[in-house]
């Protein structure tokens, strides 16, 4: 009977699949947030800071109130506050959104570390997972298929955004602001207002991604919680060519790459596994080289983005 509990080498692909599902959620939420922001014609590079601040806000709120869902709400609100700050600064004349993003990246992390000091030790209530692996007796499979509802929220959001960009008034308005500010002004839209709302919404989603980190997986709060997911998610948007559904597939890919390291370690490889931990970073580098070119602009990039002009 030990065989059913010990999957041996089969544990590696299982762990990667389970990891992909678990780890992909913050990638997905942040990349959807960034897609939303970039579709309006602005880049917010500060989402790593938003992610970390969201993680801290979620954990602290959950610790103080006992409700993980209130914690998630706090993460979203903190994220949109940072988004509002980014948008407000960028609405000033001759401000570069990239530079503001980098400043807010550092600011968000600094603020989270400063406010989060007292919450590093304690434990807080966690977000519940959906036990979708109950059909199996194998505890490894059962734990692998315990999936956070946030994963499904992310999928639903990806579908809604993909549909909404072409089929709703808000989707069209967002895309006009991102494709041609002149055309938007000519029909009487306030480009600043559209971009402010889009950056706030993007910040909200990224904050949720942070909340997932501190309240579900890995499920604690410390200063090394995020290992650059917020930054990699921005690279992922470029790879996904600003399409929400492709963001979902790309997130799974990144999640899987991130899960390789721990998975290899669980089957007892003790040498060189650090190399596998570098997989997501190598993947980011590889994808950026793959999707960029010296002679052409990025296909699918909103025309108003500072990187496509």
């Amino acid at each position: 009977m030990t065989g059913t509990f010990d999957l041996g080498w089969w544990g590696v692909p299982l762990a990667i699949v389970a990891g992909a599902i678990r780890v992909s959620t913050p990638y997905l939420l942040v990349s959807l947030g960034e897609t939303l922001t970039e579709k309006s014609g602005r880049v917010n590079l500060g989402l790593e800071g938003t992610l970390v601040l969201g993680a801290m806000s979620a954990f602290a709120t959950c610790y103080l109130t006992g409700s993980p869902w209130l914690g998630m709400l706090a993460a979203g609100v903190a994220g949109s506050a940072l988004g509002l700050l980014h948008a407000t600064i960028c609405n000033l004349p001759r401000v570069n959104d990239i530079a503001v993003g980098i400043a807010l990246f550092i600011f968000g992390i600094g603020l989270a570390f400063f406010l989060g000091k007292p919450f590093i030790e304690p434990r807080a209530a966690m977000l519940p997972g959906l036990p979708l692996g109950n059909w199996s007796d194998n505890p490894a499979i059962r734990s692998a298929f315990e999936i956070s509802p946030m994963f499904f929220v992310g999928i639903a959001l990806a579908i809604i955004l993909e549909w909404g960009f072409t089929n709703t008034r808000w989707g069209l308005i967002l895309r006009i602001a991102g494709e041609s500010a002149d055309a938007a002004r000519a029909i009487g839209l306030s480009v600043h207002r559209v971009r402010t709302l889009a950056t706030m919404a993007g910040g909200f989603l990224s904050g949720l991604g942070g909340g997932f980190l501190s309240l579900y997986y890995p499920g604690n709060w410390n200063e090394g919680l995020s290992s650059g997911q917020g930054l990699m998610a921005i690279a992922l948007v470029i790879f996904a060519r600003w399409r929400p559904l492709r963001c979902f597939y790309a997130s799974l890919l990144f999640g899987g790459a991130t899960a390789i390291g721990p998975a290899v370690q669980t089957v007892g490889i003790s040498e060189g596994y650090y190399l596998f931990y570098a997989a997501p970073y190598l993947l980011t580098l590889g994808l950026l080289i793959y999707s960029s070119s010296r002679t052409r602009t990025l296909a699918g990039a909103p025309s108003e983005l500072s990187i496509s002009r």
């Binding site: 008034r169 895309r175 494709e179 055309a183 029909i187 909103p302």
Partner: peptide, 28 residues
């Protein structure tokens, strides 16, 4: 003189843009 069309959108989408009120959900 300089076109105010949005190049990465369809002709139909460009038609709709000028409307004073767009429906919240567009029945294409």
């Amino acid at each position: 003189q300089h076109f105010t069309l949005v190049p990465q959108m369809t002709v139909a989408e460009n038609f709709l843009l000028g409307r004073e009120r767009l429906p919240a959900i567009i029945d294409w």
